[in-house]
Design a protein around this nucleic acid. Structure first.
Lengths: 200, 200
DNA sequence: TCTAATAGTGAACTGAGTCCAATATTAGCA
DNA sequence: TGCTAATATTGGACTCAGTTCACTATTAGA
C-alpha cells in the first residue's frame, strides 16, 4: 500500500494522518486500528503521530474540537454587560451555522465507537467538560460570580449538555439530515425555557 | 510492608484493594500509583484487581457509581404515567438524601493532589454519560418517545449535568459542607425552571 | 468427606502514550 | 548561492493499563 497522497501535491503530515485514519476506521473499525497502522499508511514515523494528536481518540473529534475553539473565541468577544444566556445561545448558533452537513465527527458515525468502548466514549465527554468550562468561565465573568458557584456550574453543564444533544441527534439523522443549526436552536431552547414546559 | 488489614478480621479482596488504593493515592497521587502497587499492598495477585474493577479509574468513583445504580433502580420502580420530570427529580433527591457527608468520591476531593486532572476527569465523564443514558431511557419510556429524540436527549443531558454540578459544588465545599441533598435540590431546580429565570 | 462452584493466580501478550537524543528539513538571511 | 537557526521528523527503548487463559485454591453444601 502506497502512502496516502503519494504523488499528489504535498499534504501536511497532519492531513495525511487524518485521512489515513479515516480510511482505516472505515475499513477495520476504530478499535482494530492501531496507531502503527495509521502511521504506516500515512507514510510517517510513529512518533510523528503524537506530535499532532495527543491521543488516538483525538482523530474522532476533529470537527467538534474546532467548534469548541470557535465557541471560546466567540464568547471572548462578547462585550461585558451583555445578557449572558442570550450571548451563549447566539455564540453557539453562530458556530453551528458554519458546520457543513458532512462535518460530522467520526466518533458519532462509527458504530464501533458509539458502543461500549469506555475509553473512546470518555474521550467525547472530555469535550463536553471542556465546553462546560468555557461556558462556566464566561457566565462567571458576565454575572460577576465564581466559575464553581452552583448556579453557574449547573447552567453551564445544562447548556453544554444541550449542545451535545444537538450534535448527537443531528449526527444520528444520517445522510438526509438538515443543518445542525436547526437542532442547536431547538436544544438550547429546551433548556433555556425550562424542562417543566418543554417536557410534557 | 504488610498487606493492609493483615491480622484484622478478614476483609474481602475488594475492600482490601479499595483501602490500599486510597492510601496510595494519598501518599503518591493517582497517576504515580500503578495497579501493581495497589495489588502488592493489598496482598493479592494482579489479576485479581481486574476481577473487581474494570479499570484503575473506577477506584475514584465508587460512591458515584453506587448512586447511579440507585438512581436507575429508583427510576425503574416509577409507575408508568407518573409525571416524568418530577419523577426524575424525586428519584435524584431520594438518592442524594442517603449520601453521607463523607461519601465524597475520591476523584472530587483529590484531583489537585492526584496529579493530572485530565484522566480522572474523563473517567468522571463516563459516569455522566451513563447517568444521561439512564435518564434518557426513563424519559423516553414515560413520554412514549425514542431515547435519541432531540428533546429527550437535551432534557436528559441537562438533568445529568445539573446532578453533576451538585456533586461537584458539594465536594468542593470541603469539610464544612452541608448535605448533598441541598445542592441537588438547587441544581435540579435551576434547570427545571429554565435558565432564563435562574441566571439573571 | 466428596464435589462443584467460585475466587484467586501468574504469565504472556497487545497497544497507547512518553521520553529522548539524533537527524532531516526548511526558512530566513547575508 | 551558502550559512545558520529553528522546526519537523525519526526510531527505539520504556512504562503501564488492560486482556486472555489455563491453572490452582478455597469454600459451601450435600
Amino acid at each position: 500500500m502506497k502512502p496516502a497522497g503519494a504523488g499528489r501535491p504535498r499534504l501536511s503530515s497532519r492531513q495525511m494522518l487524518q485521512s489515513a485514519a479515516e480510511e482505516l476506521f472505515f475499513e477495520k473499525g476504530y478499535a482494530a486500528t492501531t496507531v502503527d497502522d495509521i502511521t504506516r499508511r500515512a507514510g510517517v514515523g510513529r512518533s510523528t503521530f503524537f506530535n499532532y494528536f495527543p491521543a488516538k481518540s483525538d482523530l474522532l473529534w476533529v470537527e467538534l474540537d474546532a467548534a469548541i475553539d470557535r465557541l471560546a473565541d466567540e464568547l471572548a468577544a462578547v462585550p461585558p454587560g451583555a445578557a449572558p444566556l442570550a450571548a451563549v445561545r447566539d455564540a453557539a448558533l453562530r458556530v453551528a451555522a458554519d458546520i457543513g452537513l458532512n462535518d460530522v465527527p467520526l466518533a458519532l458515525t462509527q458504530d464501533d465507537v458509539m458502543g461500549t468502548r469506555e475509553e473512546t466514549r470518555s474521550s467525547g465527554l472530555a469535550r463536553l467538560a471542556l465546553r462546560s468550562d468555557v461556558i462556566a468561565g464566561f457566565l462567571a465573568r458576565q454575572c460577576g460570580g465564581r466559575p464553581d458557584d452552583l448556579a453557574v456550574l449547573a447552567a453551564a453543564n445544562a447548556l453544554s449538555g444541550a449542545i451535545s444533544a444537538a450534535w448527537t441527534a443531528w449526527a444520528r439523522e444520517g445522510i438526509g439530515r438538515g443543518p445542525l443549526l436547526d437542532y442547536m436552536t431547538a436544544a438550547i431552547d429546551i433548556v433555556s425555557r425550562g424542562l417543566e414546559e418543554s417536557l410534557v
